[in-house]
Design a protein around this nucleic acid. Sequence first.
DNA 1: AATCATTGCCC
DNA 2: GTACGGGCAATGATTC
Length: 550
Amino acid sequence: MRVFQGSAAVKPLELWQEVTASPPAIVGVDTETPSLSDRSLLGLGLAFGQGRNFYITADDDDFPRALRVLRDPAVTKVFHNAPFDVRLLRKYQVDYSNIQDTAIMVRLLGEANATLEAHSWRVRLQTTPATQLMAEYKAKDMTQIPPEAVGAKCCRDAEATLELYHKLHNEVDHALYDVDIRVVTMLETISQKGLALDHPLLDEVTVYYKQMADYYKTLTAGYGFSVSSPWQVGYTLATRGNFLPLTKSGKQLATDDATLSELDDPLAAVVLLYRKYAKMLNTYLVPWADQPRAYTTFHLDAITGRISGTSAGANEPDRNMLNLPKKSEMADVEAGRVKPVRHVLLPDKGEFTKGDASQIELRLLSHLSGDERMERVLRNPDGDIHSDTNDGMEIHNRYIAKVFNFAMIYLANDKTLARQIKTRDYERVAEYRRRWMSTYPGAAAWMERSQVDGLRDGYAHTLFGRKMPIPLDMGEAHARSCSVNFIIQGSAADIFKRMLLVMTPWLDMIRLPVHDELLLDGCANVPIEELARVSPVWTPVKVEHQRRWE
DNA sequence: AATCATTGCCC
DNA sequence: GTACGGGCAATGATTC
């Protein structure tokens, strides 16, 4: 079926024949899917100008003809949130080298809400969110809405996207926008590659985790509660005489790791062990069991400009691999009874090359603040920042110094610091904080200025000028943290994405970008000099070759 | 069936 | 008495 939502002056059939015969230079694109979880393609909306648009369902005989427009690298395809559409169009093998993304443009203007509906006013068009359409038709998903209505919405969205592109094209900072759009294209290529799975090892690890999870679950069976329910865990443990504090919201009893570890009750320990195994089992091991490779879909919509990883809907196997467990603190791994989960990822070429922008966030804090002591230590290739902090604070505990260094980037409060350094002596925490600030007075002053600026302006800016809205509606303390952290995290993301672009010649080898770390398949000769030049801050990249991802 | 709440993994 | 930043996802409980 084809739907047309144009002006009286444009004849749908003529438009269709015109654009499929000779594709235009630029097209606004929108896709429709049954739901966010079922991301199969219902139909495609294309817009070529005001009132010039059509929608075609994926089951139409002429659909392949419409696809030609998307497959043509000479046609600029404008999406609103390209990573989403490009991912679901993957199986139709569309071109994604020549794309634009109006959602990225809008975010670069400093907008927290980058939905199309929130910005279509800019081009004097009214778009309706899918949720609203579904409510109007009392539909539980898009398949229950008449295709004519879906098509009309899709046409409007595609047209709004195209018009938004024309409107914002000259408003955005292209130094920032061009990086993001090129990164989006790279990320789709990286996502398509995925990583090989070592199935014999995966099976081995899975069997072990299953055994352990089952074992700990049976240990709880006699107590009449479900281990995987925090509510029931809290109730059961409290009934057995344990004191449990309330959760943050105050609606339940807290049963998190920190809380349960404090208890003497053996049942609490069993609950924690069960959770450890069950989580990995359900999130990665079981879903990977019948997959040849492991994939991650990437997004570029984080407020600070960082890359994030996600699944790709219920009908695709993709998992977020950016949070794959790293610490092999589990006793079984330590004792050699089982391999860490990361080890089931196999390099195609026998080894991985890993590049790590070491201590990029502290380097940024030092550079942005101009703190002399911190800069001096970090510029020294043999310098050890945490030891220096330890010396400056005179605490004789490098671990505590390290905790403080990272806590400062996040603007942690005394309570959090106290918990992390395992003390209840708040006066000591406050004293340490004073010592940190007098060790690095430049950094302390910059952090204070950043908070004042953030609270006053409602925005923070990265080193490269990316504008990030500060959430002012979640309390002053949160806004203050964001005012400091966004600058550091966002600047690190700016640098990392530019490094990723430098790595374009190695694109075929890139497997996973993980915030400040890049995993490559095979032995790569990483251009560390060129990578370093990307950043105005000295940001050395440490390169390692590994048989498995460590 | 959707949304909230909790928990836990990453940088 | 005390909000630590950014992400994503699985689970169960609650609400519609």
